[in-house]
């Protein structure tokens, strides 16, 4: 390598990190602002009496996807009322990994035994691996709480949580709008932060 080329390499090596440093600062500021807005949004909603809506709402690290209805309220039309989502036999939620730290996951809901006439079992899978099961639901109410270990988190990005209910199914020729399972809360947080 000639002296000329070597000099330019040195300049490049010294200068290249500069924009990335600047970007890192911008990113840190951005993240602070994003965290602040999340906090404010949550505080305002809780203050307005909408904490039940927040429990089933998509948020920065929880995204409700296919298999769930939009958030509904009972009585309807007021976000301060009892909030829930209808769920089919299989519901998909995306959870953001927090640097693969172990995370506490709890899901709760209700299913209408009178309609399905069976003792359903609710099961959670993270990226295809079974994480926990409710056992046969006896009185309609179900809840699952577990810690997702770092070993179950395959990536630093998003994890696929699948909630399945064993007894909700229908024949292809008999496809009613099965509104028998609801989710009333999903929590995804760092257990180190306390209960």
């Amino acid at each position: 390598m000639t002296r000329f080329r070597l000099r330019w390499h040195l300049v490049a090596v010294l200068l290249l990190p500069l924009p990335s440093c600047a970007k890192a600062n911008v990113s840190a500021d951005m993240q602070r602002e994003v965290d602040a807005r999340e906090q404010l949004g949550r505080a305002v909603a809780v203050d307005a009496g909408a904490s039940r809506a927040l429990a089933v709402a998509s948020r920065a690290d929880v995204l409700f996807e296919e298999g769930f209805s939009n958030v509904e309220y009972d009585p309807p039309d007021d976000f301060r009322h009892h909030a829930f989502r209808w769920m089919g036999q299989r519901g998909h939620v995306r959870l953001k990994s927090h640097e693969r730290r172990p995370m506490r996951l709890s899901v709760k809901g209700w299913l209408n035994e009178k309609v399905i006439r069976a003792k359903a079992v609710v099961t959670l899978y993270i990226n295809g691996r079974r994480l926990g099961s409710s056992g046969a639901v006896e009185d309609g109410h179900w809840s699952l709480e577990t810690v997702v270990p770092s070993s179950s988190q395959r990536t630093d990005g998003w994890l696929d949580l699948v909630v399945t209910v064993s007894a909700v199914a229908f024949h292809w020729s008999d496809a009613p709008t099965l509104r028998v399972v609801v989710v009333t809360g999903l929590e995804w947080r760092d257990p180190a932060l306390g209960p």
Binding site: G41, R42, V44, A45, A48, A50, A53, L54, A57, S58, F64, N70, V71, F79, A83
Partner: peptide, 8 residues
Amino acid sequence: WVQEVADE
């Protein structure tokens, strides 16, 4: 806008 905090 408070309601929109929990929007889809």
